[in-house]
Each structure stands twice: as structure tokens, then as C-alpha cells.
Design a protein around this nucleic acid. Structure first.
Lengths: 109, 109
DNA sequence: GGGGAGGTACGATGCAAGTCATACCTGGAA
DNA sequence: TTCCAGGTATGACTTGCATCGTACCTCCCC
């Protein structure tokens, strides 16, 4: 698959899709960790240690990518994920702040 | 059922629940219309003319209520719904602005 | 005191979401 | 070159969500 497959343009990011993607605690945790990291910080899918199988991890990252929340680029063997900070902030100002403010207690340990 | 049944306290409003509630276009439309109306404006469930049956309308309003987004009070025959503006704004600043900014094109006509 | 409008409760149904096991592909490391 | 780690694709399964029909309750109004 080509690199930029399934990455919607900034203007095409739909609120419904974004909210549906963020309704899942695991996906919210990924976005939160990316947002807490350095700007444009790239991490591999497996570095999040989600408590689900490999196939499910792929599924969640695809959901985030198709919603327009993350960008995934092939880098040799693995695939790096970055948060589309500027795009999200432009379309939905304040959304990332709401996510990072969430307590990390019960949600998706 | 008592009046304040199923209304979570302000501090108990969970982000996951709120996002899940707002993932549905019909429920988002209800919140958007309430937010566009006057502050503390109360409307009956049926005044939204949602394109679904009565039972489904009840279901959606219960979902919004249990998520903490609206408050429902019995008023004689019918039941008035108000947006919990201040509570939402305190817990998730900017969220209502994001919702009201959504274009009302394809979503839930 | 009906009767009807506005809502809720309950059960059933169709479909999408989240999960996994398995098989497979691809680069780097040994 | 041979493996293995990291990801994807596919099919299957389970659970939950959105929906409806029907039955029921309760006020208001005539």
C-alpha cells in the first residue's frame, strides 16, 4: 500500500469520524500519549504496548489514520505514527487540550 | 422515575461517555440546536423532529442525559430538555464551540 | 370522564465495532 | 541466507448500538 493511503486532507476531516475514533479508550490513549510527547514525535505502533493482539492494534491505528488524527509513514521495517497536531487544531481548536486533560486512571490500562 | 434520575454530577461526567454520545449525528444535532438556542432554553424532545420513531428518540435523549450533556425535567405532560452548558464548559472547555461550528450539511437531516 | 398527545419500558432485530487466530509479507540482523 | 520482529489482510465471532413495534402510563383538554 502506498504511503499516504487513507490519510484524509485537512479539510476532509469529519467531526463525526473524529469523535467516533476518540470514543474508544485505547485510541484515546494513543492520541493522548502522542500529544504528550514532543511535537512531531514519531513512534511505532508497538511502542504503545496496548493490551490487545497485533491485528487489533493495526485496526485501531487504521481507524485513527482514516479519521485524520494520525499520520503513518513507512520507515524501513516498521511504520511510524505521528499526531496531526496542526490539522486537528485548525479544524477543532481545543480538542487536543481536552484529550490531554483526561485523567489516565481507569481508562485503558 | 424521579426527576434527577440518570443525571451524573458535574465531576462524574466522563469524557469517553461524552464522546460516544456525540459520535451519533442525531445526538450531535440535538446538542447543536440546544447550544444555538437561548441560554437555558428548554425544549421538548419532540420539538426536534428527529427522523426516527418515538422509542428511538427516548433512547437518544437518555443517552445524552446519562452522558451528562443534557438535563431533563418533567413539566406536566411532557419533558423539557436543557443543555448543561456550564457543566460541559467547565469539564471540557471548548467542546461546545467545536460542536456548534460543525456544518449542518449532510449530518442527520 | 374519555381521548389523545407526549414519553417510557420492553423485547426483538439488523448491523457495525472490537477482538482474535491464522496466514502472509517485508526489512534488517545474525 | 536465514530468521525473526513488526505490520497487514482476511475470516470468524461476540458484543453492543440504533432502530422499531407494541404496550403502557400520565397529564391536559374537551
Amino acid at each position: 500500500m502506498p504511503d499516504d493511503e487513507g490519510h484524509p486532507d485537512t479539510a476532509e476531516i469529519e467531526l463525526g469520524r473524529v469523535l467516533a475514533a476518540l470514543a474508544d479508550p485505547l485510541r484515546r490513549r494513543v492520541v493522548r500519549e502522542l500529544a504528550a510527547g514532543p511535537k512531531d514525535g514519531a513512534r511505532t505502533c508497538s511502542s504503545f504496548a496496548l493490551p490487545v493482539g497485533k491485528a487489533t492494534v493495526t485496526y485501531h491505528f487504521r481507524t485513527l489514520r482514516e479519521a485524520g488524527l494520525i499520520r503513518q509513514v513507512d520507515r524501513g521495517n516498521s511504520r511510524m505514527a505521528t499526531l496531526r497536531r496542526a490539522d486537528i487544531e485548525r479544524r477543532f481548536p481545543g480538542l487536543l487540550a481536552i484529550l490531554t486533560a483526561e485523567e489516565t486512571d481507569a481508562a485503558a490500562e
